[in-house]
Simulated scan of single mutants.
Amino acid sequence: MVAGNVEANLSKGLSPSQAVLKRGFDVMGAAVGLALTFWLIVPAWLAASLDARSNGFFTQRRVGKDGRLFTVVKIKTMRPSRELTTTVTRSGDPRITPLGRFFRRTKIDELPQLWNVLAGDMSFVGPRPDVPGFADALQGAERVMLSIRPGITGPATLKYRNEEELLAVQTDPEAYNREVIWPDKVQMNLEYIRYWSLGRDIRYILDTVFH
């Protein structure tokens, strides 16, 4: 009976009060974060514009809450390539610029996503927003992952913080991502929703910033 209740609660996602608490924390945190990091985002955008010889903001359509598409905003770290068209990035990817490697290593490229959080497209903590073909293809109880906003960080993001290095040693990075990494991320994100608390969100944010 207890297991049945847990599964029933999971299928509904966060409770209304939990959703309000999570969103309130996101709005306040994103507003403060943008105010504190605006001085860093602007010069990073200018530098990326010169480095990539195009608009320094990278935008891409990603799958968000309830399966709706939204436009994620990051600092551009890659140049387009005619030879490589995959959305899977691995360590040593020739598309990544030298400055882009610095932005990725320091997470500066992630800062513009604070706007996505403030606008309601994303949360500080949650499943990473993927391109179409992953989260929107979930079936059954796993679709509860779409009941919350995707996040800048989260348990799966922290576990796979070295994902690019992991993919770099695979014979078929795309297959490994789809068949091994993605299913593991789904299970971790379902557990995150099941045991959600604001304290856990704060812990994930601190782990991301200081590790």
Rank of each mutant, 00 (worst) to 15 (best):
P80N: 00
F70R: 06
R104A: 00
T77K: 03
P80V: 08
T87V: 14
S81A: 04
T87E: 07
F102H: 09
K107W: 06
K107R: 15
R90V: 12
K107G: 09
G67W: 04
L84C: 04
R79E: 04
R82W: 02
D109H: 12
P94R: 10
T87L: 10
S91Y: 13
T89Y: 01
I96R: 00
D93Y: 10
F103D: 06
T106S: 15
R101L: 05
T87R: 06
R82S: 12
G100Y: 05
P98I: 08
K74E: 13
V88N: 03
F102A: 14
M78F: 08
E83M: 12
T97L: 11
L84Q: 11
T106H: 00
E83W: 02
T85L: 12
R82P: 02
P94N: 06
E83K: 14
R101Y: 09
L99V: 08
R105D: 08
D109L: 05
V72T: 15
T86I: 04
D93N: 07
F70W: 02
R105C: 02
V88K: 00
T87P: 03
M78D: 09
L69Y: 11
P80C: 03
V88G: 00
T77A: 06
S91M: 05
P94G: 06
T97A: 06
F103A: 07
T71F: 13
R101W: 07
L99H: 09
D93C: 03
T85H: 13
G67N: 09
L84P: 01
M78P: 08
K76G: 08
M78W: 10
P98H: 10
I108L: 15
D66E: 13
R68Y: 09
R104S: 03
F70S: 03
I75D: 08
I96Q: 05
V73L: 13
F70M: 06
T97Q: 09
D93T: 11
R101M: 06
P98V: 07
T87W: 00
L99A: 00
L84W: 12
G100A: 07
D93L: 05
L84A: 06
R101P: 03
S91W: 13
R104T: 01
R95F: 04
R68L: 12
L84I: 15
I108N: 03
P80I: 02
M78V: 14
R95P: 05
P94F: 05
D93H: 06
F102E: 02
T71C: 12
P80H: 03
L69D: 10
T77G: 06
R101F: 04
V88C: 04
L84F: 12
I75L: 15
P98M: 08
R68A: 14
T71Y: 13
G100F: 11
G67S: 11
I108P: 01
